[in-house]
Design a binder for these strands. Structure first.
Lengths: 211, 211
DNA sequence: CTAATATTGTTCAACCATTCACATTTAGAC
DNA sequence: GTCTAAATGTGAATGGTTGAACAATATTAG
C-alpha cells in the first residue's frame, strides 16, 4: 500500500505517534544500531509491537520479515512522511523567560525546525539580541512573517494576548501554531494548533497521588 | 454515583480532560460568569457537550437540569478530584534556560504547585540565586527532597542525564515526574511520568502542512 | 539442504470511547 | 398555575483503536 497525504484518512492518533518513533530511531542511530524490530521499538516506548507494525503499515512496507527494520531507512521514511526532511523556518512570539529559552534551544535544528524571528509587544525588549536574532515589534510581525515565508509559529505570550497574536499570525499566513499560553485558541479550520501547558500535565498526575 | 480514587476504573483519558475543564472554569470565574452548561463549556474547548456530561458523571452529579453548572462549585469539585485544592511542593532539576524559565514562572502557585528547590550538576551554577531559591548540587538532592517531602519533580536536563536523574528522584521518594528531556524514562510502575517535547508537537503538525 | 527461529504485514475479535437520543427536571414567561 | 424552553444524566448505538493470532518470509545454525 502506498497511502500518504492529508485527508487520506490516516487517523490523527497514528500521526501523533510517528514523531515518537522518529525520536527513538534517532537515538538508535546515535547508538550505531543498524537494525530494530517492532518488538524492540515497542519495548523502549511502552507500546505494543502490533501497534507499531499497524501504524507503519498505513504508509507502506518498511520492514523485512525475519530481520526487522533498517533503522536508518525507517528513520528517513518517517522523516519524509512527516515532512521534517527539510527545515521549517519558525517565528517565536513573546520573549519572556520562556521565549528566551525557546530561542536559545539547540534542539530544533537537528529535527527540522529553525527559529528565524522573534517578536515582542514590549518596547523595552524590542531591539534586544538573543543568539543571532534581534527582537522585533508586533508592528512589523505580519510583513516579516510574510517576507520569510514562515508557516510555523510558537506563542509564548500571556493568556490575555494569545488570541490576538494568533489572529495576527493567521492573517500573516501561519498554518501551524504551538501555543504555550494556557488558553484555547480559535483559528480557521485549516490552521493547526498544538498546546503545551505544564500545569495540565502536573494536574493529571496528582489525581493518582493518593497516599 | 460517588466514584473516586485511583484504581477505581475511571479511564485515564477522562482524567486527562479534567485539567482542561478546570482551566476553562477558572477563566469563567475571572470573567465573573456564574453559570455554564455542558454545551457552553464544550463550545469553548472544542469538545462535545455529551462528552463533558459523561466525563463528569464518573465522579458525581454536579449540575442542575435546566440551569447547568454553577461555575464556582464545579471548579471546586474538580480541584478536589484532582487534588489540586492544596499546594504540591515541586523540585526542578536542571537550571539551564528552560529550568530558569520554569523557576520564574508565576503560573504554578494559583493552580496547585510551588517550586521549592532547584538542582543542577554544574558546580558553576550551584549557589546561584533564582527568585528566592538557591541552586543546589546533585549530592544533596536526595536528602533535600526527602526533607521537604517533595513528591512532584520537573526534569529539564539533557537527554543523556535524564534517566540517571529520574532514578535518583524515584529513590528520594518522588512519585510524579514531568520530563522535558526528549527521552522516555524507565520508572517503577507506581511512578507517574508525563512528557513535554515541543518538537513532537511541531512534527505532528508539519505532516498536515502540504502545499 | 533442512530445520529452527525470528519477524513482518494483516485479519479478526475484543475492547474502549464517543455520540445519540430521551426521560426527567428546572427556570422563566405569561 | 400552566406551558415552553433549556439543560442534565444515562442507556443504547455507533465508531474507532488495540491486541491476539497467523500465514508468509527471511536468517541462521547445523
Amino acid at each position: 500500500m502506498v497511502n500518504e497525504g492529508p485527508g487520506s484518512g490516516i487517523p490523527d492518533i497514528v500521526i501523533g505517534r510517528l514523531p515518537i518513533y522518529l525520536r527513538a530511531l534517532n537515538r538508535m542511530l546515535q547508538e550505531d544500531k543498524e537494525y530494530t524490530s517492532s518488538h524492540d521499538l515497542g519495548q523502549r516506548l511502552g507500546i505494543s509491537s502490533a501497534q507499531i507494525r499497524k501504524d507503519l503499515s498505513h504508509f507502506g512496507e518498511f520492514g523485512k520479515q525475519g530481520t526487522g527494520y533498517n533503522v536508518s531507512y525507517l528513520y528517513e521514511q518517517i522523516r519524509h512522511i512527516l515532512q521534517v526532511d527539510r527545515q521549517w523556518p519558525m517565528a517565536v512570539v513573546g520573549v519572556g523567560d520562556l521565549g528566551r529559552a525557546i530561542a536559545n534551544y539547540r534542539g530544533f535544528v537537528p529535527r527540522g525546525f529553525r527559529v528565524v524571528s522573534l517578536f515582542d509587544a514590549d518596547p523595552a525588549k524590542v531591539g534586544d539580541r538573543i543568539g543571532d536574532l534581534t527582537v522585533l515589534s508586533f508592528e512589523v510581525m505580519t510583513t516579516e512573517i510574510k517576507r520569510q515565508g514562515v508557516q510555523v509559529a510558537m506563542v509564548a505570550v500571556p493568556a490575555e494576548a494569545a488570541q490576538q497574536v494568533a489572529d495576527q499570525l493567521v492573517e500573516a499566513g501561519v498554518r501551524a501554531i504551538l501555543n504555550y499560553a494556557p488558553i484555547m485558541l480559535a483559528v480557521p479550520e485549516d490552521v493547526h494548533v498544538q498546546y503545551i501547558d505544564p500545569v495540565i500535565h502536573l494536574q493529571r498526575m496528582t489525581y493518582y497521588l493518593k497516599p
